[in-house]
Design a protein around this nucleic acid. Sequence first.
DNA 1: GCTCGTATCT
DNA 2: AAGATACGAG
Length: 303
Amino acid sequence: MNEWQVDWTPELHRRFVQAVEQLGLDKAVPSRILELMGNEYRLTRHNIASHLQKYRSHRKHLMAREAEAASWTQKRQMYAAAGGPRKDAAAGGGPWVVPTVGFPPPGAMPPHAGMAHHPGQPPPFCRPLHVWGHPTGVDATLPLSPPSMLPVWPRHLAPPPAWAQQPPVDPVYWHQQYNAARKWGPQAVTQCVPPPMPPAAMMQRFAAPPMPGMVPHPMYRPIPPPPSPVPQSNKVAGLQLQLDAHPSKESIDAAIGDVLVKPWLPLPLGLKPPSLDSVMSELHKQGIPKVPPAATTNCGGAA
DNA sequence: GCTCGTATCT
DNA sequence: AAGATACGAG
C-alpha cells in the first residue's frame, strides 16, 4: 500500500462509523464526517468520500439480504405453521409445500436441542458472519457473547477459519469476513459442515442457542451456484425450481442465512443438509473416530 | 469553483 | 478488492 494511500484500520473505520452515526445516515456527507473525525488522521474529503461510497454500498447489500432473509423466514414459518410436509400437498398446499429433508417436525424439539449431536461436537450448521462493523444498530452482533473486544484477525494473514471469528469483532473489515465466508466455498451451499473447530471454542460457541426473535446477520456468502440448474433428483423439487426459475444470489444467500438462524425449520428447496459421509469424515478429521448411531439419525443424511 | 454521488480505474 | 480518481450535476 502506498504511503499516501489511506489505510482504513479498524480503529479508523470505527471512528468513521461513529461519525456517520452521529450525523445520521442521510446527513452523513464527506465534509461533515471529516469535521467530526478531526484532522488527526490527515484525511482528505476525498478519502472520506471514497470510503463512504464503499460503506454505503456494503450497507445496501446487507439490507437487501436482510430483507430477503426476513421474507424467507416468513415463508418458512408459514410453511411450518401449515403443518410441514404433506403427501397430498400438491392438491392445495401451494408452492411452499416443498420436499424437505431430515428435520424433525416443527415443535417436536426446542431449537438446537434435538440436533443429535453429542456434547462437545458441532451441530452441522454454521453461524452467520459479520460485516462492516457498526458500534450500534443493524450491525449488532449475535448474542452469543459480549460483542466487546476481541482481536482482529491480522489482515496480512490468511483469513481465519470460521470458528475463529467467534463473536464477530467490531469493527471488522468486510473483506476479512467476506473472504472468510467465501472460504467455505460451494460446499457451504449444500453441506454446511463447519471447518474443524477446537473443542473449547466449540463449547463456547454452541453453549447458547440464538435468541428467539433475534435476527442475526445472514452474513454468509457462499460462492454463487453454478449456472446450470441445481442437480435435483426429486420431481417435486424440479417443479419448485421452475417456479423459482432463477433465484438470485441474494435469495440463495438469504435462504441459507435463514436456515442457519432457524435450523429447526424445514430446509427450503435446494438446500441440502450435510451428507452422512461428509459429517463422518469431518468428525474423523477432528479426531472423533466413531459416532454412535443415535447421533446420526437426525442428520438428514440422505442427501 | 465547491461539494456530492457515482462510475471507473489501479 | 480497497482505495483513488474522474466526472457530471447541483
